[in-house]
Design a binder for these strands. Structure first.
Lengths: 191, 191
DNA sequence: CGTCACCTACCGATCTACAGGTAGGTGGGT
DNA sequence: ACCCACCTACCTGTAGATCGGTAGGTGACG
């Protein structure tokens, strides 16, 4: 059962890293503070993840696994699932904060998460377009194509997160997202 | 003309700070690298802005002056001006990158720009709601109120910026924003 | 006219504080 | 006996900030 213990440690470390990144971003995060949170020394942590960047990569990979399993389908998301995803996010400000902070940093030059987010967006847009095509066909009610609407859906989700993180009481994130989806359906909308 | 020289220096420093923050974010930016860009030592820079945070504040204040002058009206923006603003931004990736990086960092705990962005969004949403009310009255074509649509417009602008910064060739930012505005007008849209 | 007081705009040296990473252990479990 | 999971000790680099200058200018006054 040593293997199990080790895997457990790794999971703990990733959880702690997620928290620390949420609080201070990747650049602001220190190995020491992550280690402390799992009851290790900084060097003990380096035993599991040999560099700070390796730890970040592990965090991103876990995220990747997460979004490739739940919430998503082989052929993409479904629109009603997107709404639940936003609701789910609204209950997990920590995770949202982690990835919003990372996204923000990632636009800077040579940031280790930059490639991750770039590729992720490419995929997300593509699968979003699929989703929209399944839902609406080649033309959405407003006259847009799925490919042109996809970046908008994505943008709304991300943009709302920042507003919500900064001032949760000022923005009803899930409600606002539903409003946007209704907009996609046009004025001739369903319930 | 000593005064003028000094003011010029300060302006140069702010320009340099903007660049460095775009490249590395606030946390990643160093006083030394800003100083170097204006031909000063770090200590020389501290003569003008006594702390790193003071420099950031100056950058944010300048931004504030900028937003409060151009692009905006006493009673808020106008929708067509918003479209031009997005076009303008698309020609200035540096500035967009600076403020996107700062926004991302600002969601972390105790970040010196947090309050700035929180308040800024409050104002932006309010003046956006005014704009929408002037344009559409109390109900937008899709059935939304101006207050509920305002966060969406803001979210789209910000969200598109991240996608565009990460992969400019993948997203036509101004085009996508126009698509969104058309969505606001409903399927019964004008040209 | 000179010089004394004082200001602005810096620079060099240095302090303190971490931060990430390396080397070389030690101890318990199998 | 071995190795996995750590730890102690340590090194190196860097960042922000302070201290104490210096060079040049300005103005007031005898």
């Amino acid at each position: 059962m040593v293997r199990a213990r080790s895997e457990e440690r790794r999971a703990d470390i990733l959880r702690a890293a997620l928290e620390v990144i949420a609080e201070r971003g990747y650049r602001g995060a220190t190995l020491g503070s992550v280690a402390e949170r799992v009851g290790l020394t900084q060097q003990g942590l380096l035993h599991y993840y040999p560099t700070k960047e390796a730890l970040l990569v592990a965090v991103l990979e876990e995220r990747d696994r997460w979004d490739t399993s739940g919430g998503r389908d082989r052929e993409g998301w479904r629109l009603d699932l997107m709404e639940s995803l936003v609701e789910y996010n609204a209950m997990r400000p920590g995770i949202v904060q982690t990835f919003s902070a990372l996204l923000g940093e990632s636009v800077t030059d040579g940031h280790p998460a930059r490639e991750f987010f770039t590729e992720r967006y490419t995929q997300v847009r593509a699968s979003m377009a699929d989703t929209l095509r399944q839902e609406f066909g080649d033309r959405l009610p407003g006259g847009l194509t799925p490919e042109r609407a996809a970046p908008l859906v994505t943008a709304v989700m991300d943009g709302l997160q920042y507003q919500w993180l900064l001032d949760p009481s000022a923005v009803d994130m899930p409600g606002a997202f539903r409003d946007f989806v209704r907009l996609l359906y046009g004025s001739d909308a369903p319930a």
